[in-house]
Design a protein around this nucleic acid. Sequence first.
RNA 1: CGGGAUGUAGCGCAGCCUGGUUUAGCGCGCCUGCUUCGGGAGCAGGAGGUCGUGGGUUCGAAUCCCACCAUCCCGACCA
Length: 431
Amino acid sequence: MRLSQYLITTSKEAPTEAKCISHKLMLRAGLIMRFAAGVYSYLPLGYRVLAKVTSIIEEEMNQVGAHQLLLPFVQPAELWKKSGRWENYGEELLRFKDRKKADFVLGPTHEEMITQLAKHQINSYKRLPLVVYQIQTKFRDEPRARGGVIRTREFLMKDAYSFCQSEKELMIIYEKMKQVYERIFSRCGLNYRLVEADTGPIGGKRSDEFIVLAPLGEDRIMECEECEYVAKLEPGRDFQPTVIGDIGFPASGDRCPLCKSKIRIKRGIEVGHLFWLGEKYSRSLQATFLDRMGKEKYFVMGCYGIGVSRLLAAIIEQNYDEEGIIWPKEIAPFQAVVIATSPEVFKVAEEIYLQLKNGGLDILWDDRDLNAGVKFNDADLVGIPLKIIIGNTFLKESRIEIKTRREKTTVKVKKDAVFQKMKELVQQNAK
RNA sequence: CGGGAUGUAGCGCAGCCUGGUUUAGCGCGCCUGCUUCGGGAGCAGGAGGUCGUGGGUUCGAAUCCCACCAUCCCGACCA
């Protein structure tokens, strides 16, 4: 991609409305644009990142045999009335009428839809267990959006749903999904914790959350300094504070309920959530299958969400420096950028760009007629992992420099060795 | 929804307190030309504004008053 022809505007200053790091950087790097409170568009560069994250999720989900599908965003109210959530979901559920005055909602989640789908598409135990998922827009009319893309009203979510014959079978799937999530979040370069949580309006017997550690996170977790104990900080959770008379919230320095060592309170951003739904939705929507004995049974369900757009912000919160974003290699919008520092090496830069591009690398060429400093700064702000620099070093020693964004190390190679070296670097970067 | 703040060019700001030399400025960015070229270059020229919206006070309002709207932050809330 030639940068001169790419739709991107970077800026030195972030709009006043942005307060947190990821929000500022996403605006400065030209990844997103706001249209209303909690309603964002993704510009080409941001969309590229979103697409990379999406493909990691798809790869890992497909790997374990989950099937991708797409449910409607606009949903008839009928099913919500059946499940009881038309009354219970509250104002977060955006309701409206079509021209025939029929009630509809903008989907904040898709349990009703998927259960209805299963009811019609799955008749026999022979198809079970089954996991389906989609990556799609959700709308929740939150009272307050915040932190750029961290908490929005419209957002992109991966939601998966499992259908099983029994709780025993669900147990196996539920654990499998945990493992899938661990692989996804690791590939996204995240430092996270898995914690038990309350089920909220989704309901069900149990739920677990993946929390990305970040100081500005909305959620608090407590973590034991010694043993494995980690839990979400919520009212009513199994904890006895040592300081009596306090309101029942533990504090850093209190004792672990398991091993009595000290615990620490940390903040984080919820990026993934697993729910053990059981028969909650299959019963209310009468979704059944025939078991081995020819007996009609309710599906035993689970659901598994990942906030895809929020994930971008979470990744940035853990991967940045003074210069800007440091995308993990797999997620970066481009693997490398070619930079010529002066017009006399422009031609060489073009050759290298074409060679690398035709060689299958995901590469950007900064062919703009600007000073080198601007190009370096933009590349760093946007977070491109590798810079291929053609300049003084090329004129003096006939070598091309490859500089890494994160470690800031440089290697120099001859022109005809660039492709080979880049392949190595990209390979090792992909883990 | 409670508390706090902000709204002036694409972005960052000044001007408002004390109404009138302000034709509403400055920096960045943008457009044209020339020069420059390894970490946000220089010179010259140029485009871009219903001062959030509506009402009021006044001879006169970006500036004072009222209402509304929008956005952000803290809280409540929250897959």
